[in-house]
Design a protein around this nucleic acid. Structure first.
Lengths: 243, 243
DNA sequence: GAGTGGTCTAGACCACTAA
DNA sequence: TAGTGGTCTAGACCACTCG
């Protein structure tokens, strides 16, 4: 699957960084060394290193080498396009997902979704509301809208597991990128009820528009988090190109 | 300054997208066409297009071409390493910065900063507290800690303008990447006072560790936002490499 | 089949860092 | 000066899309 040379190199090096074989502030082997080790061209090594750099694993220093900057403690629900089930898995979290409702609706009743996904009013959508509980307390309410046309066989049972796994593994679609907005908003009475009370009565709210690799927006997600439990972590680089 | 070929191409294409000459869903010229237009090699064109893709301007579709996905409305204090003055400028915001305090302190009194910047207790720091006001209301309180060693000539006057501009243009240092964490926290009484009241008494809190291009952490920033005014926007891609 | 983007190569020249 | 990463080239072969 990942049989590209640069992906293999990326995987091996990132794996060694995550496992701790390379620690923060360590030097990676030089590009020339990696060329010899992997028996590939320099541009291929550089492609792998560039990926490591944009993903926050290393910093390349001209004239010096590549140094590891990844630090486990600064990790977490990272600014990445990852499904809740995937986060849960990678963090060994003891969350339980419960499907509160699963309906087929018309976009015309949800103007915000219409504009976000740029669809017409008669487009059919699956509306899925799910809660994420830790023990007895609900910490997250996820409301999702999916294009029925792209996944006509979606069911409540699938929604109880991982919809992303279904989309990628069963349907063979490729999820690619998203736009997110994070705000802090008062809870509606319905939300307060689902949360079974929350102090403060405010929710950290993440709205996302998710796109496939063919650039089609297929999902609109509203994720309401109990504010006291919310943390969003991000790695970002300063734009290298200025006017 | 940006005399690289791929940067020039990036600038020109991103400029045309931002200005609206290329609209969302438009096709960019094919790689081969760009090769001819710019009289460069294909890898150089591809470098520019890759940058446009990772920065959320385009999506490349195998067998088809590059399509514009950038959409102005989904813009804003984006997940990027940008200083407040730069945001202000790019959005024509009518904010006023006021320096509340400017001190030289010892790291030992700020254990959170010590661990964040990985420095020893006797390291000298500038502690700068600034408020950002729109009219009469304070919307943001920024608390910054900078390594004195790297910028001994920092002054309160500079802090009233743009510290980032001073660091890059006066000192010639290159600001490179940062780790951020966003949380929602109750305000302290001191903060409530600076905000001159805020309902709810919660602050959207962004903590960042900012690094230079040589991977040295030089700044720790705590940015408290009036929750009702806070919005954080992010573009992210799904990791292409899986285990 | 023609055109598109994706991967990879071998080699060149440059700018920067460090001893 | 030797070693490092940054840019650029010309060409190859592949996989995908679409008419």
């Amino acid at each position: 699957m990942n049989s590209n040379k640069y992906r293999m190199i990326y995987q091996e090096l990132s794996g060694k960084i995550i496992s701790g074989e390379y620690q923060q502030h360590d030097q990676l082997p030089s590009e020339n060394l990696l060329v010899k080790q992997y028996q590939v061209s320099r541009e291929t090594v550089r492609k792998a290193l560039s990926l490591l750099q944009t993903n926050g694993f290393i910093q390349k220093l001209k004239g010096k080498g590549s140094v590891v900057i990844y630090n486990e403690s600064m990790n977490f629900p990272v600014s990445q396009l990852i499904s809740f089930e995937e986060i849960k898995e990678s963090l060994n979290m003891d969350y339980v997902t419960h499907v509160e409702s699963f309906d087929k609706v018309h976009a015309s009743d949800y103007p915000a979704v219409m504009t976000a996904l740029k669809i017409s009013g008669n487009t059919e959508l699956f509306k899925v509301v799910r809660t994420r509980r830790k023990g007895e307390t609900v910490n997250i309410i996820d409301t999702d809208y999916f294009l029925v046309e792209l996944m006509p066989t979606l069911t409540k049972e699938i929604a109880e597991q991982s919809i992303y796994s279904y989309i990628e593994n069963q349907l063979g679609l490729v999820i690619s990128f998203s736009n997110k907005a994070i705000t802090f908003e008062p809870m509606t009475t319905a939300e307060l009820e689902l949360f079974n009370g929350a102090s403060p009565p405010y929710a950290a709210t993440v709205r996302s528009i998710v796109h496939l690799s063919n650039a089609v927006a297929f999902q609109y997600n509203i994720s309401k988090h109990r504010a006291s439990e919310f943390k969003f972590v991000d790695f970002s680089r300063r734009p290298t190109i200025k006017k």
